[in-house]
Design a protein around this nucleic acid. Structure first.
Length: 136
DNA sequence: ATTCTGACTTGCT
DNA sequence: AAGCAAGCCAGAA
C-alpha cells in the first residue's frame, strides 16, 4: 500500500498546466519503474489528477486521450500537433509538449518527495530485514 | 520456482 | 511518423 500512497501524493504535488512521465515519477520516488507507476495510476488514478502523468512520448494514457485532452485545454498545458482537428474529426494526432510542460518541482516539493522516497526505502529495508530473519 | 501481464521505455527499422 | 523487439519491475496465478 505504501507505494501506491507515495505515487498518489506525488501526483498531487503536480500543478495544473504541467506534467511528468510515468518514468519520471518512478525516478523521483527512487523506486519501481514506469510500469509500476502505470499500474498504480490504472487502479487508483481516478482519485487524483491522472492526466498530469503520461507517457514519455507525451501521449496521454491509452483509452483516455479525449478526457485528458479536455483537461490539457482547460489547464493551458503546452501541446504539439493538432488537438483542435482531433476534437473535430478525431483524425489528427497531438502530444503534450513535455519539453515545455514538464514539471519542475520547487525546493519544498523536493523536500516532500525526498520524504516519500525515504519512507519507501525504510519500508522495503524492513521487509528484507524481516525476510532475513525468516531464513536464519 | 515459473510464467504471465501491464495507463511503460528505448533503440532500431 | 509508425511499428516492432527487448528490457524492465512487481504483483498475481
Amino acid at each position: 500500500m505504501e507505494y501506491v500512497e507515495a505515487v498518489l501524493e506525488l501526483v498531487g504535488l503536480i500543478p495544473p498546466g504541467s506534467a511528468v512521465s510515468y518514468g519520471d515519477v518512478a525516478e523521483l520516488l527512487g523506486s519501481g519503474g514506469p510500469r509500476q507507476v502505470g499500474s498504480v495510476m490504472s487502479r487508483h488514478g481516478s482519485s487524483v489528477a491522472w492526466w498530469r502523468v503520461l507517457r514519455a512520448s507525451g501521449a496521454a494514457p491509452d483509452g483516455h486521450e479525449a478526457d485528458a485532452l479536455r483537461h490539457y485545454l482547460s489547464e493551458g498545458t503546452a501541446l504539439r500537433g493538432n488537438p483542435e482537428e482531433y476534437l473535430r474529426n478525431g483524425e489528427s494526432s497531438w502530444r503534450v509538449d513535455l519539453r515545455v510542460a514538464r514539471w519542475q518541482p520547487s525546493d519544498a516539493d523536493f523536500d516532500r518527495i525526498e520524504a516519500l522516497a525515504e519512507g519507501l526505502a525504510t519500508a522495503s529495508a524492513k521487509m528484507s530485514e524481516a525476510n532475513d530473519g525468516m531464513t536464519q
